[in-house]
């Protein structure tokens, strides 16, 4: 297992070997159609050494952190933690941010709650 795979497992704290490939995560995911790599594939991407592709996928920004997959996984695998760890591989790098303060004025309206900005910065920026 390469450094990158180990890093994802270490950040996420997930044991991908527990997965029995039932797909309940993908059946539950509200963002399934937006994702190029689907929740049930997160585990095999890490196990098969394709973490780089996972980190570069659209899925890292499409996960809503709604925890439906975590709640319903019959094996306690917690796919949301894997995709978040892949996201962190990006944002922890220099130039890994995908949101900057300059973008904000064009993205908000008069009702935008502070909570949305805070959450988005946590997810998209180092």
């Amino acid at each position: 297992m390469s450094n990158r795979e180990e890093k994802v497992l270490q950040i996420s704290g997930v044991n991908p070997r527990k997965c029995m490939k039932c797909g309940k995560c993908s059946a539950s995911c509200p963002s399934y159609d937006e994702m190029d790599i689907k929740p049930h594939q997160f585990v095999s991407y890490v196990l098969n050494g394709r973490t780089k592709a996972l980190a570069e996928s659209k899925s890292v920004e499409k996960c809503l952190a709604c925890f439906a997959c975590v709640e319903r996984c019959p094996r306690n695998v917690e796919p949301a933690k894997i995709i978040d760890a892949a996201r962190q591989l990006n944002v922890r790098q220099r130039y890994g941010d995908t949101l900057s303060a300059n973008d904000i004025p064009s993205l908000i309206d008069e009702d935008t709650p502070q909570q949305l900005l805070v959450s988005a910065f946590r997810k998209y920026k180092r």
Partner: peptide, 18 residues
């Protein structure tokens, strides 16, 4: 697997699976 079954207003059930 099925993630959720949602009862609908018309009395049907939507099965959300993969």
């Amino acid at each position: 697997q099925v993630g959720k079954v949602t009862p609908e207003p018309d009395g049907s059930l939507t099965v959300h699976g993969v």
